[in-house]
């Protein structure tokens, strides 16, 4: 494969990754708007972080090259993967300790 073809493939891959990232961020936003209670929203809010940011950072790494800033974006993803569930857990746990009963089927709150 020639260098130019490789370059084109890289650009298209970056575009694809960015679109995937945007898609999951959009899904996540839709979920936060549509889902009924704090627990189920916490599920979908983490989607924006895991795959939304995941694909976005992959696109960044591919754009800038794996040396230097690209490597840092991988580290960034690593830290997001550590902090995101911790924050989601903290919110859910706070709700649980406040005595908020999770929404189930048949509940009028929606």
């Amino acid at each position: 494969m020639s260098a130019a073809a490789l370059e084109t493939a890289r650009v298209w891959l970056v575009v694809a990754l960015t679109l995937f990232g945007l898609f999951f961020t959009l899904v996540s936003m839709t979920g936060v708007l549509r889902l009924p209670d704090v627990y189920s929203r916490a599920h979908t809010a983490s989607q924006a972080d895991t795959l939304g940011a995941g694909f976005g950072l992959a696109a960044v790494a591919l754009t800038v090259g794996l040396a230097g800033a690209g490597f840092k974006s991988v580290l960034l993803l690593f830290f997001i993967f550590l902090t995101n569930p911790t924050a989601a857990h903290a919110i859910a746990r706070a709700a649980f300790e406040e005595g908020i009963v999770p929404w189930t089927e048949g509940d009028d709150r929606r």
């Binding site: 627990y39 983490s46 895991t50 993967f81 569930p85 857990h89 709700a95």
Partner: peptide, 15 residues
Amino acid sequence: LANSITLTPGTLTVR
């Protein structure tokens, strides 16, 4: 384990 469960959408560790 708790963080892995939370990271996976659809399951959320609460306590």
